[in-house]
Each structure stands twice: as structure tokens, then as C-alpha cells.
Design a protein around this nucleic acid. Structure first.
Lengths: 252, 252
DNA sequence: TAATTATAATTGTCTATACATTCAAACTTT
DNA sequence: AAAGTTTGAATGTATAGACAATTATAATTA
């Protein structure tokens, strides 16, 4: 971790702990501190910046609260690994149920291929090179031989690495991005809508055409908010629901 | 705030700040500390329990993080008011848009009456008294004369207080509960589903029958998880979507 | 060699203190 | 009476240090 002493201004009105928090956050976002790497010890940061250990702890505890690092007593403090769920929006009322009952739960690959950029993809990924290639996946999720959801995924294919067997088995978009592009997935946007399913989707999922379904589009970005992955999922409306518990207290 | 000194055990393996955190949390949940009320000052807590102010601050900062309390420099620390959103699940992509553009946004009351308990309500609210009365509201939300969502609300009617003009205008379930029952809304469960809308709903919302809609059922509980309010909302599928930004870092 | 025991390093908790910042109320001046 | 000023009280930030708890490593012992 390369930290320059000058960047912390003790006489500033901005609290020291906050300057340090921002400093480390920046290093993580820029990739100078990679997931799994350890931060310097509290003592080391403390003496390097000539600030007290409690102030360092304050900064680190903010990072912990933000989920960017985790601390282990006796070992050290480490950068957390970015975690982007693919099964989105915690649409898992049904998925949880399946797991709890130990039911048969599998992902079936319908199609996997490398395709050339078309107008739609070029727009989505903000690229204009005609030759650009993309990875394209179509999968179906099913439990006990009942089909539950259908998903289409795209990501850039720039490393020309072969697609592994394991990737075909259960292709997760973030891991595909890591494997086949130079980009690092950092954040995502998910949009959930309701829709009447199309003829094609109805056939795939074994439901009546125009049945109500959840439609989730996920866009994955790197640290510069460049689009590096995109997926669209269709979930059977009669098999999924979204539950949230909330409340207690919030500030006015 | 009634705090007994004995409840904090300095020699316990459980950290003092955590004991204090739990202690104050309990007082808030029990209603001994009511929303808006101020906590004793840090100095006062510190001297009353004979612990350092920094330890008190640690406990309070946990409460702040949990949203149960908020601190104001120069004034004090106050219990936050319970906040249960009625427009649920942040289904507000569209609502936000409306507000941003300053569009005409209004709630229309279709029906408001006091009804007797029927079988369905008795089951939902876990009551068996035949005579029990309930408040019943039916409202429509619209913007620029386009109807967007339809909502049915129920709560217990036990105080026999008249329904105020202001309540008819934009009846919020949590505030109705506070006004007309002895209970205090504390938490809520929301279930979001997709559905094909019924004939009745189609007419009310001005859409085609069987159009896909969001269906949200909200149950409101008091601190003992007793059901004190229930609502069902239907949102036009072509007008609402749910967006969530997430990611960055999470601990493994 | 394998198991056990010390040791050092690292984070976790806690104290006591100092000064800064903000807010509200009391006081003073106009 | 209104406006400005002072003052006290509350939270916010920061320090230095002590000891506890946990982990990994090194040293010792069986």
C-alpha cells in the first residue's frame, strides 16, 4: 500500500479519520489495494501518519461498516472481495425454500457462443468497434424438473481464452467478466419490472403465453462505471415473490 | 429514562459498550424511551454507570448506525421516530420522476368506513371477538389524471375516535394505527408479487384486464409482532419499476 | 517427529483528558 | 422591543496509554 504522508492535512477542517477513510477507499477503488490484501497494521498507519491509533481505528471502522474491508483480531485487516449477486433482488423466497427442502436445483445451459457486436450490444456497452466480440449465454434454472427462470447474459470477450467446462456448468456473470475481460466488476444496477411473457419465454418456461413474470435486467460496471456485463432474466410470476422485512427506527 | 446501575456488569466478558447498547435498545423497544425523547447526556450516562464517555459514545454510535437514535451536536441525542414507508419497496422510480417534474400527484379516496370483523380479517389480525371493528380504506393514486395504483387498507378501530378530515385526504397506515389503536407500529413485512390484474382492478386503473401488475401486501406489526395493520396495493406494471444499485464490497 | 508451550504481533476494549464545534438560552446593547 | 453578544452545555474529534483476546509463529518438550 503506497500512501503518501502529504495527503493528510492535520490542520484541515475535514476530520483526520475521514481523510484517512477516503484515502484508503480510493486505494481500494483504484485497485492499488486488491481484494484479500491486508491493510498496513493500525500501529503502522498510526506511526506513518503520526496520528493516534484510535483515529486510525475510527477510519477503519467506517470502512468495515461500508463493507469494504474486514478485520480479524490477531491477524489483521483485509480488503473484502467484491460481491455482486447474480440471483438478483433477493428474489429468493422460492430459492430459499428449495434449498431448505434439499430439492434438486440445477442450471441448464441452452446456448453458449461468441458473437460479433450488433447495434444493440454496441449501444449497451458503449463500444463502436465493429470487430468487437461478445460472450453470449442462455441458461434455464430449474428445480425438480420444473423450469423456474430463464436468463440471457452478455459480456465482452477480449482475451480470446477458451471457455472452461466449469463456466458452462453454472456461468456467473461476474466471474465470466473476470475471466474473459480486463475489467473488474465493481457495482451493478438492477431494474425489476413486471411483464407478460413472450411466446418464446412461455415455451421455455412451460407456462401460458402472456403469463405475468418478473423481468430483471442487470448491468454490471467496473470502477469507472463502464458497462462490462449485462443480463436479462425472466422469473415465473407464480413461483417467485419478494419479501422484505423492515422498519424499526429511522432518522427523520 | 430509568436505568438501573446494576444491569451493567463491568467484569463481564460482554463488552460494556455492547451491554449499554442493548440496554438502551431495550428501553426504546419497550417504549420507556419514546420517539423524540432525548437520551441522558453522554456525560450523565458516563458518570451514572461510572464508565468513560468514550465507551458511552461507542454504544450510542451503534444506536445511530442502527437508525434508532440520532445525535445533534450542541443539542443532544434523541430517539428516532419509527418510520414505515407506505409506498413500499421503493417502487418509486416513477414516483420520483413525478416529483422531479413537479407533476400533479394526488390520492383519491374511493371509500372509507368502519366495518365489522369478518372471517378473513379475524384470521389476519389474529382476533376472535365477533364484535371487533376495523377501519377500511380504499384509495387510488394518480398523476396528471392517470391512475397509477390502487390500495386497500385495514386496521383495528378500537378507540372510537372520529376519522379526521386530514386522515381522509391521504391516509397513511402507520399514522392511522397510531391514531385509532393502542398499538405502536414497529416493523413491517412486505411481500411483492406479480399478478394479472382482475376485472375490477382493470376498471379502476383504466388498463386492460389481465395486464401484468405489481401486487404488494404489507403487514404492520407492533413490538410483540402482533398484526396491527394490513394493506394490499396494485401498481400498474407499465408505469412502475424497481431499481436498485448495489455491489461494491461485501465481506465474505 | 509430533505435540505442547511460550512469544510476538495484531485487533478489541476501555480509560482519562483536552480542545473544537454547534446550539440554545441568558444577557447586553441599541 | 429588537438585535447582537456572551456563556454554558452538549456532541465531535483527537491523543496517549493500558490491558484483553486472538492468531500465527517460534521454541520447547515428549
Amino acid at each position: 500500500m503506497v500512501i503518501h504522508k502529504e495527503v493528510i492535512d492535520k490542520s484541515s477542517v475535514i476530520p483526520i479519520y475521514y481523510q484517512l477513510f477516503k484515502l484508503i477507499e480510493e486505494q481500494i477503488r483504484r485497485g492499488d489495494l486488491k481484494p484479500g490484501e491486508s491493510l498496513p497494521t493500525e500501529h503502522e498507519i498510526s506511526s506513518r501518519f503520526e496520528i493516534s491509533r484510535m483515529t486510525v481505528r475510527r477510519a477503519i471502522s467506517e470502512l468495515v461498516a461500508a463493507g469494504m474491508v474486514y478485520a480479524q483480531q490477531g491477524r489483521g485487516t483485509f480488503v473484502a472481495t467484491p460481491k455482486l449477486d447474480n440471483i438478483i433482488f433477493e428474489l429468493n423466497d422460492f430459492n430459499e425454500e428449495i434449498k431448505k427442502r434439499g430439492l434438486n436445483y440445477k442450471t441448464t445451459l441452452l446456448e453458449a457462443k461468441i458473437i460479433r457486436a450488433n447495434t444493440e450490444l454496441k449501444a449497451k456497452f458503449q463500444v463502436d468497434e465493429e470487430h468487437k466480440r461478445f460472450l453470449y449465454f442462455r441458461t434455464v434454472l430449474s428445480a425438480e424438473d420444473e423450469r423456474l427462470s430463464y436468463e440471457v447474459k452478455y459480456t465482452i470477450y477480449s482475451k480470446s481464452k477458451p471457455i472452461l467446462e466449469s463456466e458452462l456448468k453454472d456461468p456467473s456473470l461476474p466471474s465470466l467478466i473476470v475471466a474473459h475481460t480486463e475489467y473488474m466488476p465493481m457495482s451493478s444496477k438492477k431494474v425489476l419490472q413486471v411483464a407478460a411473457c413472450t411466446e418464446e419465454e412461455a415455451v421455455i418456461l412451460g407456462i401460458a403465453p402472456n403469463s405475468p413474470v418478473f423481468l430483471i435486467e442487470q448491468t454490471i460496471y467496473d470502477q469507472d462505471l463502464k458497462t462490462v456485463g449485462w443480463s436479462k432474466s425472466v422469473y415465473r410470476g407464480d413461483r417467485y415473490k419478494l419479501t422484505s422485512y423492515d422498519g424499526w427506527y429511522k432518522k427523520d
